[in-house]
Amino acid sequence: MIFAGGAGYMAMNFEKPSFGIVDMGDWENISDDSIKVVSEAWIHNPNSLGLSVGFIDVGYEAEINDISLAEGKVDEVSIESGNNTKTLETELRQGRIPDWWVSHLENGENSTVSVPVEINTPVTSFSVEAFSKEISTNISSRIENSLESIEGSYTGPGIETTRSGLSVEIRPEIEVRDFKASWGDISEQESEVLMDMKVHNPNSYPIPTPSFGGRADLNNVTVANWTANSEPLTELAEEGMIAPGETEELRFRVGLKNQRMDDWLETHVRNREYTEAEIDAQLIFNVEGEEFKAPAGGMECIIQIQTDILVDDKQHSVENKGCEPKNEAYPETENEESTGTDSGNRTEQDLVDEGLLG
Rank of each mutant, 00 (worst) to 15 (best):
S146C: 04
E248R: 04
I135N: 05
L233K: 15
T87F: 02
D280A: 09
A237E: 15
A277D: 01
L265N: 02
S317I: 14
Y205H: 04
G20N: 09
I2A: 13
G340A: 11
L236M: 11
S114G: 09
A243N: 07
L88H: 07
M261D: 00
I284H: 07
S125I: 01
G108W: 11
F126D: 08
S125F: 07
T161D: 03
S153D: 14
S146M: 04
K326A: 11
D353H: 09
V168M: 02
L310K: 07
V128C: 02
D26E: 12
A70Y: 02
G255A: 15
H200L: 08
N29F: 07
K16I: 06
M12L: 12
F292W: 12
E129V: 09
E246Q: 12
E15G: 05
G156S: 05
S18C: 04
P172C: 06
A294H: 02
P98L: 04
F285H: 08
T234L: 03
I305A: 02
E290K: 11
A181F: 08
R177L: 15
I186W: 00
F179I: 14
M195I: 15
D353S: 13
V193C: 04
M12S: 12
G152P: 05
E238N: 09
I56F: 00
E288R: 07
E109T: 06
D57V: 05
K16G: 03
W27I: 08
V113R: 05
P17W: 05
G20T: 08
T85A: 10
I64N: 00
C323H: 02
V53I: 14
D263N: 09
N345W: 03
A7K: 11
L265F: 15
P208T: 09
S34E: 14
V311T: 15
V269M: 06
G156E: 01
E348N: 07
Q306C: 06
R177P: 00
T161A: 04
H200Y: 12
T90H: 06
D185I: 12
L310I: 12
L310H: 09
G6C: 14
E169D: 07
S127E: 13
G158P: 00
V38Y: 08
V102G: 00
D178A: 11
W183A: 08
V199P: 03
S68Y: 03
D308P: 03
E238S: 10
Q94I: 06
I35R: 00
Q315I: 11
E40R: 15
T155N: 08
K180V: 10
N45L: 10
D26T: 13
K198P: 00
Y330N: 03
E291Q: 13
G344M: 03
